[in-house]
């Protein structure tokens, strides 16, 4: 049966996501970095819990609600158990379910957003980058870096070109950020100066790992 409302929801979500600027999350030697273009005062990256960060694109009202829910879940889990017991998978499953429900039922308003939930561990090999599409489908594949957004092939090629055969896992935070920014600048369609939002989850720091480097609330 052809579902008119579902098609509408898809179109709506695609509209928001394809118009959004892309977000790149990469797991490097000493952390996980989030880089995105963001001139607005709304943050597209946030801390969920000590080891977990999130990056989102699309409709800000959608992802703000989702991030708030994730923070609440992580805070209660972290208080009841421990920092180590707050997993990216838990957050991804909860967010996925929420987004799927909103997408699959005609009377609910869908979340027009795509997310990446990142968890930092001892080595880049054990880091997790979980992408969740607007349908609520999490992608658990292990990837050194992920790009969320639409029409990302040229950016992907540019990043691979800039990498020159090196792996993200060997790069430092600083070089990683520089590389991704360079690739975004080379492939962006918008005119004018690019304003970035850059956040990092640091690998070596105990406790509070999430830091904003650029953009609203950034320290440098």
């Amino acid at each position: 049966m052809f579902l008119e409302w579902r098609k509408e929801k898809e179109q709506n979500a695609e509209h928001y996501i394809s118009n959004a600027t892309v977000l790149v999350a990469a797991s490097v030697h000493d952390g996980i970095i989030f880089v995105t273009e963001n001139p607005s005062i709304y943050s597209k990256t946030a801390e969920i819990y000590n080891r977990i960060g999130i990056g989102a694109i699309g409709e800000s009202a959608s992802f703000n609600r989702l991030i708030d829910t994730a923070i609440e879940l992580a805070s209660t889990t972290g208080l009841s158990y421990d920092e180590e017991n707050v997993w990216a998978e838990d957050i991804a499953i909860m967010l996925g379910e929420k987004m799927y429900t909103a997408y699959a039922y005609p009377e609910l308003v869908a979340y027009n957003t795509e997310l990446v939930v990142a968890e930092i561990n001892h080595t880049p090999e054990t880091d997790k980058l979980i992408v969740i599409s607007y349908t609520g489908e999490p992608d658990y594949r292990h990837q050194p870096y992920v790009i969320i957004g639409r029409n990302t092939n040229s950016l992907k090629n540019k990043i691979n070109e800039c990498l020159k055969g090196r792996a993200f896992q060997k790069l430092t935070t600083k070089t990683g950020i520089k590389l991704i920014k360079q690739a975004i600048r080379a492939t962006r369609k918008q005119k004018g100066r690019a304003i970035f939002e850059v956040s990092v989850l640091k690998r070596s720091v105990e406790g509070d790992r999430f830091q904003r480097l650029e953009g609203e609330g950034g320290t440098s």
Binding site: T45, A46, E47, I67, I71, S75, L79, R212, G217
Partner: peptide, 19 residues
């Protein structure tokens, strides 16, 4: 202490760690 630490962190996370 745990509740206090959580409450402080919760405030800052809700504001995306900008304040």
């Amino acid at each position: 202490i745990e509740l206090f630490q959580m409450e402080v962190d919760y405030f800052e996370r809700k504001r995306r760690k900008r304040v």
